[in-house]
Design a protein around this nucleic acid. Structure first.
Lengths: 109, 109
DNA sequence: AAAAATCATCGTAATATTGCGATATAACTT
DNA sequence: AAGTTATATCGCAATATTACGATGATTTTT
C-alpha cells in the first residue's frame, strides 16, 4: 500500500530507518557533504551547486530538518543550514552499533 | 517526478544513497538484525517473526539482494539468506567516512 | 513605498515504494 | 505422478517520493 506499518516495528528500528532516509537520496548526500565541507550552508549556494530547482532543494532541506539531522538559522533574507551535532551523533551511534554488530561470520556461506 | 536524477550526482553519492536504502525501511532493518543475530536466516523464519505477508518479506529480501548487502543460498526447498561481508564492509566504510568527516563545528550555530 | 532578493509552500505530474492475495516455480515426499 | 513445502513473481491498490513552475512570505535595498 505504500504505507509502512510502523506500528509492528520497534522504536529503534523505525528511528534507524528514518535516519537512513537522510542518506538515501544522492541529493541529500550531496547537501550533507556540502554542509560538512562548509563550502556553503546558505540555501541559495546549495541550489547553485546542485543541478536541481530551488523548490526541489528546499524540499530536501525540509526532509533533512524533519529528521533533525540539520537545522536552519534564519539570517534574513537568507537561511543558513548546518549539521545538527546531537542528531549527527545519534546517527553515528545508530549506524555504528548496527554495522559493528555483524562479526563477519556468514551463516550459510 | 519521483524519478531521481542520478546522472547529476557522483558515483559515490549514488552508491551511498543506494546502500542507505538497505537501512531506510524498518522491515529491512529488522531483517538485517535477524540475519546478524543468526536466529534465523531462512526466509520462512523471517516471515514468521515479522508481521508481514510472505510476498512482502520476499520483496524486501529482493531489494536487499539488489543492493548486494545480502545473498541467498538455495537449499531446496528453502533459501538461506545471509549478510554479504564485502558489501557490508563497503557500507561500513562509506557511512564511516561520511559520518566521521563531520568535525562537530557547526557553521552557523 | 516599490523593487529586489531569498527561501518556503502550493499544486501538479510522473514515478517509486509498500503491501498483499493469487499464482507460479522448484524440489522433495509419498 | 500427485501432493507438499518453501520461495518467487505477478498484478493490483494505496500511499510516498521526486521534481518543478508558480506563487507567497519576509526582509533588505532603492
Amino acid at each position: 500500500m505504500g504505507v509502512t506499518k510502523t506500528e509492528i516495528f520497534t522504536e529503534e528500528q523505525n528511528r534507524i530507518a528514518d535516519l537512513a532516509k537522510a542518506f538515501a537520496h544522492p541529493a541529500r548526500v550531496a547537501i550533507l557533504q556540502m554542509l560538512i565541507a562548509k563550502k556553503s550552508c546558505v540555501c541559495g549556494d546549495l541550489v547553485g551547486e546542485l543541478n536541481l530547482a530551488q523548490a526541489t532543494v528546499s524540499q530536501h532541506l525540509k526532509e533533512l530538518k524533519r529528521i533533525g539531522i540539520i537545522h536552519g538559522e534564519i539570517n534574513p533574507p537568507r537561511v543558513c543550514y548546518c549539521i545538527n551535532p546531537p542528531v549527527w551523533e545519534e546517527a553515528r551511534q545508530a549506524f555504528g552499533s548496527l554495522i559493528e554488530s555483524f562479526n563477519s561470520v556468514s551463516c550459510c556461506a
